[in-house]
Computed example of a mutant assay.
Amino acid sequence: MFVIGSGAKHLEEEISKNAKILKTEIKKFPDGEKYVRILEHGEEVIVVQSTYRPQDEHLIETIIIGDALKEAGFEKLKLVVPYLAYSRQDRVTKEGEPISVRAIMKMLGLYYDELYVFDIHNPKTLDFFPGKAVNIYPAKVIAEYFRDKLENGLVLAPDRGALERAKEVANILGLEYSHFEKERISPTEVKMTPVDVNVKGRNVLIVDDIISTGGTMIRAAEILKDLGAEKVFVVATHGVFAEGAIERVSKAVDELAVTNTIPTKVSKISIVPEIMRSILEVKS
């Protein structure tokens, strides 16, 4: 059985085609506080809750859902978080700062036995969760979406740190992969160069975990076009998108697509098949 939080309502219809949705009541009191009521009973349940903006509200709701499920007698709680808020705050850079993702992981661990997240910024931070924690990279659904658009194609990561994502997608498609090397020319200028690959006349897919302002993707697309790439596609797991970023990136590339960990107008790739494969082990 599944419980769908307010941050995952956009996934509910598709999930309901494969699994039972537990009857719940989630609403707000007049003062803005959340109210949760579990209307059915059972032993094991999977809660799906994405924690994009308003992040704090979605996180608090997740905790209250966990408490309500325990109160209703559920013994094993699994939590699927398509997008985990605070995951980029994974280190101390100035004295007195918290490791915010650690605090979030410990909080979730008060109620949930297992945690499944999608393409977390730093997989090592899953060690902060006290139970079983799994990072899912939706390479298969990304690859399938772009399969027909990448004949004689190439998959690139915007930097070496994202190379593993490019590798996973490329291996599914049987394509070559590489990354951009960055070289700082001045305090305000960075040179980006694809490493050891020829992009001329080829369709290129750039893959990353998060797009916020989109500046890196726009610069990468410009470089690829200058080098003779035929078409440039951009994909990310999480479309955080600062104001105007969708429009700016879309103008610079042939297609922009993200998964639906966060609902946006370019969330064209569903992660629900990955939820079914990874948590329920449903073959598809």
Rank of each mutant, 00 (worst) to 15 (best):
L39R: 08
R37K: 15
A72E: 13
I63A: 09
L77I: 03
Q49F: 04
P82G: 08
H41M: 10
I63T: 06
Y35F: 09
V45C: 05
Q89A: 06
R91Y: 03
L110A: 10
E43S: 06
S50G: 08
D56Y: 10
R37W: 06
L108G: 05
I99M: 00
K94W: 00
E44T: 01
R102F: 02
L108A: 02
Y112E: 08
I120D: 12
R53M: 11
D56Q: 12
I104Y: 05
D90Y: 00
A72N: 10
D56V: 12
L84R: 00
Q55M: 04
R53H: 09
L77T: 01
L110S: 14
K78T: 11
I46W: 02
T93A: 03
R37L: 05
V48P: 02
E40N: 03
K78N: 06
L108F: 03
R91M: 01
M105I: 05
G73S: 09
Y52G: 06
H58R: 11
G73Q: 11
V101C: 09
I46R: 02
G42C: 09
N122Y: 13
V36K: 04
G42P: 08
F118P: 12
K94T: 03
Y112K: 14
R53Y: 15
E40Q: 14
Y86M: 04
R53S: 15
D56A: 09
P98C: 02
R88W: 01
E75R: 14
Y52P: 01
I63F: 07
